[in-house]
Simulated assay, not measured.
Amino acid sequence: MQVNHFHDHYEIYYLLSGKRYYFIQDRSYFIQEGDLVFIDKNQLHKTRNVDEETHERILLSFDDRWIRSIGEDASTHLLVPFVQKQHVFSLSGTNRTLVENLLFQLLREQQQALGGWQLNSRALFTQLLIFCSRMTDRISTAQDHAPQSHNPKIFEIVAYINEHYRNRLTLASISETFYISPSYFCRSFKETTGFSFVEYLNNVRIREAQRLLRETKLKVIHIAEQSGFDSVAHFGRVFKQVTSQTPLECRKLMRLSQ
């Protein structure tokens, strides 16, 4: 997960073995084997190592077009886990067995590609989402912080960035506002979130720029300003770095997909 720290599709992450830290939006989670992670579209997220041990995971994603293809009221039932405040759920016993069976069946369908595999994959995935929606209120939650990385001040700064990204934010201004040394802040921010300060700020700003490109008819120069960039040239460079597209290319693709 080196790039694309947010995207316009939904994501399910299941950890088969090992341990990971998972930063989502403004919190860090410590996840272990048997944990399900639900990532809503356009949520900033990133995983990182706990130690040197290897890990195995299954990653599934889908978009709104797929949801709409199921039926008009599909989102009411299938997107429940993605709109909850808690992103991580720990599975055990029969719940874990059932979910893993569905996941492995999905993998086999993809690998074998027998007649009707796409239709069966669709049915299996729908069944998985329905089961996850039904169990959301019943299963226990995973730990909601990352041991050895939990730092309340860093999460306070993350919340501040999420709210004030339109303003001029620098390492010096953040350090002064929160009475924290620049070197300690950089180190702690990276350890807690997995992002560098600049990387996180740029992702927050580009996510807002994409929203404006999609939902408004504002010119690129005005979108750059409203997203917190000092110049349209800098905005264009960062946008291309984060999304691999220019702002105008992104707007065109968004309109074609609507």
Score class of each variant (00 low, 15 high):
200 Y>D: 00
49 N>M: 00
189 F>K: 09
171 L>D: 00
191 E>S: 13
117 W>T: 01
7 H>P: 01
89 F>G: 03
232 V>T: 14
162 N>H: 13
233 A>Y: 00
230 D>T: 10
8 D>E: 04
162 N>P: 12
218 L>G: 00
205 R>I: 01
205 R>F: 04
23 F>G: 02
115 G>N: 05
194 G>W: 01
139 I>P: 03
94 T>G: 04
227 S>H: 02
121 S>R: 01
221 I>M: 13
47 T>A: 08
135 M>H: 00
26 D>I: 04
142 A>D: 12
179 Y>E: 14
76 T>R: 10
40 D>H: 04
7 H>S: 14
29 Y>G: 06
239 F>A: 06
220 V>C: 05
46 K>G: 01
115 G>D: 03
209 A>P: 00
201 L>M: 07
89 F>L: 14
166 R>H: 13
45 H>Q: 12
59 L>F: 12
98 L>G: 00
105 Q>A: 11
207 R>Y: 03
135 M>G: 00
242 V>Q: 06
53 E>Q: 08
249 E>G: 10
152 P>M: 02
192 T>M: 03
7 H>D: 09
64 D>M: 06
61 S>A: 11
110 Q>H: 08
254 M>V: 01
252 K>P: 02
52 E>K: 11
207 R>C: 08
238 V>R: 09
56 E>C: 12
154 I>H: 02
250 C>H: 12
136 T>S: 13
123 A>G: 07
240 K>H: 12
17 S>T: 13
185 F>L: 15
154 I>F: 05
134 R>N: 10
29 Y>M: 08
125 F>R: 03
2 Q>H: 10
187 R>Y: 14
113 A>S: 15
152 P>Q: 04
164 H>M: 15
161 I>A: 14
119 L>W: 07
3 V>F: 14
177 T>W: 11
31 I>A: 06
86 Q>P: 02
217 K>I: 13
109 E>A: 11
71 G>A: 00
118 Q>H: 14
11 E>R: 08
169 L>M: 14
190 K>D: 07
48 R>M: 14
258 Q>W: 07
253 L>R: 08
228 G>C: 08
189 F>E: 09
21 Y>H: 07
167 N>S: 10
211 R>T: 00
188 S>Q: 15
88 V>N: 10
131 F>A: 10
175 S>A: 10
40 D>Y: 03
8 D>G: 09
77 H>Q: 04
79 L>M: 14
104 F>S: 10
84 Q>T: 11
103 L>R: 11
8 D>K: 05
94 T>W: 07
189 F>Y: 13
173 S>N: 11
129 L>H: 08
197 F>H: 06
183 S>M: 12
207 R>T: 04
226 Q>A: 13
141 T>L: 12
106 L>N: 01
103 L>P: 09
156 E>W: 06
39 I>F: 11
195 F>T: 05
235 F>S: 02
51 D>T: 10
214 R>P: 02
3 V>D: 14
62 F>P: 00
106 L>K: 04
226 Q>Y: 15
180 I>M: 15
252 K>S: 12
28 S>N: 07
169 L>K: 06
238 V>C: 12
197 F>A: 06
99 V>W: 02
27 R>Y: 04
125 F>T: 00
